[in-house]
């Protein structure tokens, strides 16, 4: 291996690492606030990428119908409750957001010639379709059992992951998709050609991390989420609704997932089931951070990305094996430093 190859591999590693870092942050956030281990994070990545790809090929993305279906269910449940309580205006609001919005979106996406739209608008529409599924999913699947043990929530996540992969196959087919790059230009740094997409990925990741940092540090909602993560009951007693915290967290996680998908779609071919492996690498990073530390998780993500890039050069057949074996020393270290017997929640 010479310097040039090492640089190219590092570039790959950092690009992927930036994505894993975003995913790892979302995983840590979701776990801290809701105790849900968000296995289906990867499916949001795939849904984001493939929804964009479908739009670009001029087909109405089938994910819109999933959004409509989920919204209809939420409307029935929450609208029904509101009507029973005699809160007609609230019921109308529920129906507006959960049924009106998806239907309007379906009309817009179906009515426009989406493949002719500028990329920025396509990305925006993709996010508008995929991201609301996050809070709806929380409402339908997790809210009724929000106080269940971590293990039960984990099994629900795995079940949803399985269902989402199946739906992905139904929506997008078995073919892989790759979208065109955001821009064609590339940067020459000595021997290294840095592609625009790499810059996009890294820049957006950094921006998003800074934005999240500001959100958690400066805004009321961000602080409410942090409070919930630290002490769920205490936060609830201070008037922070755990339901709102859950939905907000899932909104952020879905946003991060879908955006990551949009970002990597020009770099990697995405299949309906690719998300799982991508999400799991985010998990490896999150585990490095003990599912608790954001900076450690981000550092872990870069390490996973680099390890993956170099492993694919030296032993490409064993790339996945090597990446997933990385968690062994991490777990070993954590296990050796932990002496405490605690009750599971």
């Amino acid at each position: 291996m010479d310097m040039a190859i090492a640089l190219i591999l590092s570039q790959d590693g950092i690009t992927n690492g930036a994505i894993y870092a975003l995913l790892a942050l979302a995983l840590v956030l979701v776990f801290a606030v809701t105790r849900v281990i968000f296995i289906q994070q990867g499916e949001f990545v795939a849904y984001g990428a493939l929804t964009l790809a479908m739009m670009q090929s001029g087909v109405l993305p089938a994910t819109v119908w999933l959004l409509v279906a989920m919204g209809a269910l939420v409307t029935v449940l929450d609208g029904g409750l509101a009507l029973k309580a005699g809160q007609g205006r609230r019921a109308a609001g529920v129906a507006g957001w959960n049924l009106g919005y998806p239907l309007a979106l379906a009309a817009v996406v179906g009515g426009l010639a989406v493949d002719a739209l500028p990329l920025a608008l396509q990305v925006l529409l993709t996010l508008a379709i995929v991201v609301p599924m996050g809070p709806m999913m929380y409402r339908l699947m997790y809210q009724p059992i929000a106080s269940a043990p971590v293990l039960v929530l984990l099994i629900v996540s795995v079940a949803l992951h399985i269902a989402m992969v199946g739906l992905g196959l139904l929506f997008f087919g078995a073919e892989g998709q790759r979208t065109p790059a955001f821009s064609e230009f590339s940067l020459e740094l000595g021997p290294l050609m840095v592609s625009a997409q790499t810059l996009w990925v890294v820049a957006v990741s950094v921006l998003l991390i800074v934005a999240l940092y500001q959100f958690f540090g400066r805004t009321l909602y961000g602080k409410a989420l942090r409070a919930t993560a630290i002490n769920r009951v205490g936060a609830q007693l201070m008037g922070i609704s755990p339901t709102l915290a859950g939905k907000l967290t899932f909104f952020l996680a879905a946003f991060i997932g879908a955006l990551s998908g949009v970002l990597i779609a020009p770099i990697t071919t995405i299949y309906y089931d690719t998300g799982f492996l991508i999400g799991l690498k985010g998990f490896v990073a999150a585990i490095i951070g003990g599912l608790a530390s954001y900076p450690l998780a981000a550092a872990g993500a870069l390490a996973v990305g680099l390890l993956e890039a170099f492993a694919s050069f030296w032993a490409s057949a064993y790339k996945e094996v090597i990446v997933f074996t990385l968690i062994i020393p991490v777990l070993l270290w954590r296990s050796l430093t932990s002496h405490h017997v605690e009750e599971e929640e």
């Binding site: 079940a159 949803l160 992951h161 399985i162 269902a163 989402m164 992969v165 199946g166 739906l167 196959l169 139904l170 078995a174």
Partner: peptide, 10 residues
């Protein structure tokens, strides 16, 4: 395809 996973998951 293995669509039974949708039913199983739900």
């Amino acid at each position: 395809g293995n669509f039974e996973t949708i039913v199983f998951g739900l």
